[in-house]
């Protein structure tokens, strides 16, 4: 009988079969870390888009239903809950738009067809400038300064 030590295969698992793994865990500190909070809030602004779209439909319906319905809706809009909602929606959607504009440049490839990509500054000036002009024009119309 040989006195040699039995050979051990160091790479052999101690138990037969595939290696058992621990389940993956989700990213740590979600949604409080890094971009997660902005990402979740950005997605949550979809609620404002949905509710505001429904309100626009309601306004159109009131317009079609005659002056009494329109005046009734305008009276309802004086309710503090509506006012609070509109302030919240305004702040939320302005932030949503500005965040979208800040992310927009990185969505543009080096070339689209033969046209080279403009510099980031072009996107910043064009998007934010257009937003400021359109917002100012709408505000002027709503306050009765124009038309």
């Amino acid at each position: 009988m040989s006195n040699a030590r039995p050979r051990l295969d160091a790479m052999r698992p101690s138990q037969p079969g595939p290696t058992r793994t621990a389940d993956p865990r989700p990213p740590d500190k979600f949604p409080g870390r890094g971009n997660y909070l902005g990402y979740v809030l950005f997605g949550s602004c979809g609620v404002f888009l949905l509710l505001s779209s429904i309100l626009v439909l309601r306004i159109v319906w009131a317009l079609a239903a005659g002056e009494a319905a329109w005046n009734d809706l305008m009276a309802q809009f004086q309710n503090p809950i509506y006012v609070a909602y509109h302030v919240l929606a305004f702040v939320g959607l302005v932030w949503f738009t500005l965040r979208f504009f800040s992310l927009f440049p990185k969505t543009q490839p080096a070339k689209i067809g033969p046209a080279p990509r403009p510099p980031d500054a072009f996107f910043a000036v064009a998007l934010n400038g257009a937003f400021a002009v359109v917002t100012a024009a709408l505000a002027a119309i709503l306050w009765g300064a124009v038309l």
Partner: peptide, 24 residues
Amino acid sequence: FANECSEVCPKNVDPSGAVQQAKL
């Protein structure tokens, strides 16, 4: 578009930009 992939990249690659560009 959480954009966190680009934040954590140790080589300053912008994978989230690549994904959005690929979408477009």
